[in-house]
Simulated scan of single mutants.
Amino acid sequence: MTQAENDYREHVFLGHLRHRHNRSQDRLWSEHQAMQLSFLQRRGLRASSTVLDLGCGPMRLGSVLIPELSHGWYYGQDLNAETLTYGEEVLRQAGIPSNGRYTLFASDQFNLSAVDRPIEIAFSNSLFSHLNLNSILTCLLRVRQVLAPGGVYYSTFFVAQPDRPWLDPQPRDKWGQGFCTHPHQDPYHYPPTVLQAMAAQAGFRMDLMRDFGHPTQTMARFRLRRRWW
């Protein structure tokens, strides 16, 4: 991931909420937190699951997911070390001790050497929407290295609108706030067929999950391709 690709190397995600103890009253925090946890629970999250949260941010999801993993483990990866320091503050405020069942690590180019057990569920919300195709392929190849047999990776992205030229900015609306996605700059949009090609290159098969509930993004599911011989 490069600075030109997006600004998360320097930007602390959700930093405007860092010194608020009532984050649950903020829609951007609470609705996304509930949406993500509910999705994982519907998709088979167990107390013994090993979960990798890529681009995990300041523990918006981690603070409610870690308590669910009484016999499992949570790994949170992010590009920005200060965002993870913020995340540790959120975990303490949530009553999760520093020796809890989790590992947070900052890494560039999706270096996952800190992951020391097979991952059953990998997850990322609003990660591919900030990545170019080279970084998406890198991410998929890295995830494949740590995924357990039968494991799955879920990641959201902006679907390119089929009625608009892919090369043009495409307008979006999230809770009344308008913005555009782009083919060449952050935030990025992609046709599903392009990500399916990236998935195949990395050894995955990809399909879309329509029940995630994100107001502007679509959830993709990546499963390891079966080998027939």
Rank of each mutant, 00 (worst) to 15 (best):
P165K: 10
C139Q: 07
P187G: 04
M219F: 02
Q41A: 02
T181M: 03
Q145T: 12
L79T: 06
F13L: 12
N134S: 14
A200I: 11
R20S: 10
L112Y: 04
E89S: 12
F105Q: 07
V143L: 08
Q25R: 13
S126W: 01
Y153C: 05
I66T: 06
C139H: 04
D211A: 07
D163E: 15
R210K: 12
H130V: 03
A114V: 09
H189K: 10
G55P: 06
R60D: 01
G55T: 07
E68P: 03
V51K: 09
P118V: 11
Q77F: 01
F39L: 10
L65N: 11
L208T: 14
S24I: 14
M1A: 10
I119Y: 05
Q25I: 00
D163T: 15
A148Y: 05
Y8H: 14
Q170G: 07
G72F: 06
W73P: 00
Q3H: 12
S113C: 09
R164A: 13
Q33G: 04
M198F: 06
L141E: 15
R172M: 15
T156D: 10
R46Q: 15
L40D: 06
R43F: 02
S129Y: 03
Q77E: 13
Q185W: 01
L28K: 12
R225F: 00
E31C: 04
H21D: 15
Y8D: 01
R142T: 08
R27W: 08
Y75P: 02
F222P: 05
R43L: 01
Q185C: 11
R221H: 02
T103Y: 04
L127P: 00
R101Y: 07
